[in-house]
Computed example of a mutant assay.
Amino acid sequence: MARAADDAGLEELWLWEDCFWESGIAAAAAALASTERLRVGIGLLPVPFRNVALASMEIATLERMFPGRFLPGVGHGVQDWMGQVGARVSSPMTLLREHVNAMRTLLRGEELSVAGRYVTLDKVKLDWPPAQPPGILVGAVGPKTLRLAGETADGTILDGQNTPERVRWACGVIEEGRVAAGRTDPHRVVVFTSAATGPNAAERLRRENEAWGHDPGADLGVAGDVDAFVEGTARYVEAGADALVFTPTADEPDLEGFIRFVANEVRPRVR
């Protein structure tokens, strides 16, 4: 899939690290090594799973090997899954804040000693920091995490339960966090949305939303021909999305064909 996206000229391919499927870091490394230009994002790495020093080492390694092509995202993780592996914490917000702040410091190549509620480091400094630290994105759903993303991160990842109207609301909450932190630097909003084209596209999208427990009547996702994709993209962009990740439905019969459709037919008209 990564090679197909690279060959077709797509800018980005986004992966994830849901339990208990595949490692996000390993999959991203394979995708980056198999391509020439493609940027690869992970939306997202659950921070309860990962010691911040190890996560920073992995991100630094990929950034040094593939400069400017890795887009790391972090977040709370699904709390039930975190409980299954004994990693659930009583204050996910505190953990995420401590993790992101420590990670950004380490990726700048600075030494860090900190004794937080969850993150404890004693004179930790990466021997091989990246020449240019990658931006760290935070996955967020609720208002507290959205504000935290605005305060601490370089971008926010919104999942597939966001209608264009909810994206607009989320962007407003993110901005509240940025204002509170006095931030004026760029902040990228990446939105995942289910998408289907070809025969029975609308019905397939409806089934996909139902499978995820989403309201089938909500304005979620994109289905249809190239015109429908362009129109759907416009709704999300007008609401504040900087990047729209088209996630094929689980029953997509031709993943490489889907990638070529997005790259060759949708992308030129969106640009």
Rank of each mutant, 00 (worst) to 15 (best):
F70E: 05
L71H: 10
L71T: 11
P72H: 13
G75W: 03
G77Y: 02
G77D: 08
W81A: 10
W81I: 02
M82G: 01
V85T: 08
V85F: 10
V89N: 01
S90E: 14
S90W: 11
S90I: 11
S91H: 07
P92E: 05
L96G: 00
L96P: 04
R97W: 09
E98G: 06
H99G: 11
V100H: 01
N101F: 11
A102V: 05
A102D: 01
A102H: 05
M103S: 12
M103T: 08
T105Y: 00
T105V: 15
T105H: 07
T105W: 00
T105N: 03
T105I: 11
L107W: 05
L107Y: 00
L107V: 01
G109K: 04
L112Q: 01
V114C: 08
A115E: 15
A115G: 10
G116M: 05
R117L: 06
R117A: 08
Y118H: 08
V119T: 14
V119I: 15
L121T: 03
L121N: 01
L121Y: 01
L121D: 01
D122S: 13
K123E: 15
V124A: 14
L126P: 02
D127H: 14
D127A: 15
D127P: 13
W128I: 05
W128Q: 13
P129E: 04
A131H: 00
Q132I: 12
P134F: 06
P134L: 03
G135I: 01
G135H: 00
L137K: 12
L137I: 12
V138A: 04
V138Q: 00
G139W: 03
V141R: 00
G142T: 08
G142W: 09
P143I: 10
T145P: 00
R147V: 05
R147L: 04
L148C: 04
A149K: 06
A149I: 09
A149T: 08
A149Y: 08
G150Y: 05
E151P: 10
T152M: 07
I157S: 03
G160P: 07
Q161A: 10
N162W: 14
T163G: 06
P164C: 12
P164L: 09
E165F: 12
E165S: 15
E165Y: 12
R166I: 06
W169S: 11
W169F: 12
C171L: 12
G172V: 13
I174W: 08
G177D: 09
G177Y: 10
R178G: 04
R178Q: 02
V179H: 12
V179L: 13
A180N: 12
A180Q: 14
A181H: 12
G182P: 08
R183V: 13
R183H: 14
T184H: 11
D185F: 01
H187I: 03
R188M: 11
